[in-house]
Design a binder for these strands. Structure first.
Lengths: 134, 134
DNA sequence: CAGGATCCGTCTTGATACTG
DNA sequence: CAGTATCAAGACGGATCCTG
């Protein structure tokens, strides 16, 4: 049926899609990934699966709503899996899929960059604010 | 004056800052970086400096307002530099700083991921939507 | 425990039009 | 060319209350 291998299709996609173009669906996907909660959830799951309450605790201060919303969107996009264990009380585990794992490194890197270079950013801000009278 | 090397300070920062915590300023910084326009602007400048109009064209469909807003924020954070050449008409060049260059690879990787894995995401979405009656 | 549902302020986004 | 000003629309995020 398929006349191309997955690698070939990926190669074609690479030259076909361009996230710089607004009409391109990858532009929208980039918008999805460019979300603080997405970064944090994916980074939190990188070491291993976690339960809903674990995530709530790890992402200190996230509202249940935002957490659910983010988890649902990521599940839909095939980045993580949701496993319900029908015990009493219910137990729900979230884990990265292989696809999600391939993304986790990238988003974690951005998060780590923020932590590592914050001092430089702060210094830059102070200088900018001092040099900008208005 | 400084009793620590830059590397030592960075190491300390690493253990001190935690973007998972909402009160942590790096959490806010992560929010800044988690922006579609930021990703695109930084990725666009990665190969080399560009003028305002170049960026406008490259980021097809961005409004001048959002572009200016994004550029200003990134300049303030020390990620890019803004150089005005007082000719007629005026010429303004934007270029990544060394700090920005250290970030560019990471954000470009996320953008590339979106382009490369979009097909898998789309497939996952179709499956999810099919399996979710409601 | 793991959410779903609702309401509601506010903040950002995006067109559009204008300027040095 | 490189922005700034203005304004309407809507997405976003959070607080709250409730359920299986």
């Amino acid at each position: 049926m398929a006349t191309m291998t997955a690698a070939q299709r990926r190669e074609q996609a690479r030259t076909h899609y361009d996230a710089f173009l607004r009409e391109c669906p990858t532009n929208q996907l980039l918008g999805r990934l460019s979300d603080k909660w997405v970064s944090l959830v994916v980074a939190a799951l990188a070491p291993g699966p976690l339960r809903f309450s674990d995530l709530s605790r790890k992402l200190a201060g996230v509202s249940p709503k935002m957490l659910t919303q983010t988890l649902r969107a990521l599940e839909r996009d095939g980045i993580l899996s949701r496993t319900v264990t029908p015990s009493v009380p219910v137990r729900v585990d979230y884990a990265l899929t292989p696809l999600g794992a391939s993304l986790a490194g990238l988003l974690t890197a951005v998060k780590d960059w923020a932590e590592t270079h914050f001092d430089e950013v702060r210094t830059a801000r102070e200088r900018y604010d001092a040099d900008t009278p208005a």
